[in-house]
């Protein structure tokens, strides 16, 4: 009974297969940014309510992941990276993924409403709708700008965290949104440059396929140049301070230099060193977001000692 194909035919999924539907790795980024949004807000939240709110924000994100896997099962089956996802692997029926996604969406939104407030719950509901419907159903297969607009879904969590604490939206939470929103395209396009997935067979219009790799390199540079002022603006806003500004200047300068180097290269140079620069920039972009939000958190901690902030 160790033969995997026999297991597949039984249609009996293990508990872990349902967990995999929720995209746990995406969830970890959601939890981190939502926690930062919640903690840097000027209003303190009861720790139990805060934890419960974060939990259901994460569950809502997971639910949208399950809906995405239900809708994209045909694409996932074609591409090597996603072939082993529960639905294309035959472990979970598409209907189950849909049901799980819808049920968890409802539970997450209602529970967030009860634990926090209607604004936070409304933002979570909109995020799920945006990721599952606007991104997965409308944009992903229709336009090479799919990543740009779809990035908004990933940018909402800090805004939801902020809304949990304050019950509203503000310049600061909009800036945190903008930071992730502008960061997503260069991050994913750097990945697309060296992953070389078969987006074409899958029918997903990736920029690397539709506009070519040269154009993608330029796009990375332009979006990184647009991202830098957002990062600096965050540092100058209410959640920033001298410490955040110092971190933001270094991180954004580094990112721009990386994007510049990507733009300077062509495919021959990239092939020659096996996409070393592209891979390095992609890895850095992950640290970029982590450190940027870490700096907001650090600034908030400094503020509690009376030495942070403007």
């Amino acid at each position: 009974m160790s033969d995997i194909s026999v297991q597949v035919q039984t249609g009996e999924a293990g508990f872990g297969d349902y967990v995999a539907l929720l995209k746990p790795r995406v969830m970890s980024l959601v939890v981190f940014t939502a926690v930062v949004g919640l903690l840097v807000a000027p209003v303190s939240v009861h720790p139990v309510l805060g934890m419960i709110a974060i939990l259901f924000i994460a569950l809502g994100a997971g639910a949208s992941g399950a809906l995405n896997m239900w809708w994209d099962a045909d694409i996932d089956a074609v591409m090597r990276r996603t072939q082993n996802r529960p639905v294309p692997a035959g472990k979970v029926q598409p209907g189950e993924a849909l049901g799980l996604g819808l049920a968890l969406s409802g539970i997450a939104v209602v529970m967030l409403w009860l634990a926090a407030n209607a604004v936070a719950a409304g933002l979570l509901a909109f995020t799920i709708f945006f990721y599952a419907v606007v991104y997965s159903m409308w944009l992903k297969r229709a336009t090479p700008q799919n990543i740009v607009i779809g990035g908004a879904a990933g940018a909402f969590p800090p805004m939801i965290g902020w809304a949990v604490a304050t019950g509203g939206v503000s310049v600061e939470s909009a800036l945190m949104f903008a930071l992730i929103f502008m960061w997503t395209p260069p991050h994913f396009w750097a990945l697309a440059l060296f992953m070389k997935e078969d987006y074409h067979t899958a029918g997903v219009p990736m920029l690397t396929v539709t506009h070519g790799r040269k154009s993608t390199r330029l796009h990375i540079l332009v979006y990184t140049l647009l991202l830098a002022p957002v990062g600096i603006a965050c540092a100058l806003s209410g959640i920033g301070g001298p410490f955040t500004l110092a971190v933001a200047v270094v991180l954004n300068a580094w990112f721009v230099v990386g994007a510049w180097r990507i733009w300077q290269r062509d495919e021959v140079m990239a092939e020659a060193d096996k996409y070393a620069v592209e891979k390095a920039v992609f890895r850095f972009s992950l640290s970029y977001l982590f450190l940027h939000f870490g700096a907001f958190l650090g600034e908030a901690a400094l503020k509690s000692y009376g030495i942070g902030g403007w």
């Binding site: 009996e12 999924a13 293990g14 508990f15 419960i52 939990l55």
Partner: peptide, 24 residues
């Protein structure tokens, strides 16, 4: 075995859910 694991998982989740609502 797999079905049992799934049942245990769902059971634990229900217990956690009760705990959350109670804490709330």
């Amino acid at each position: 075995k797999r079905r049992f694991g799934r049942n245990v998982g769902v059971g634990l989740l229900l217990v956690v859910m009760v705990g959350i609502v109670f804490a709330l």
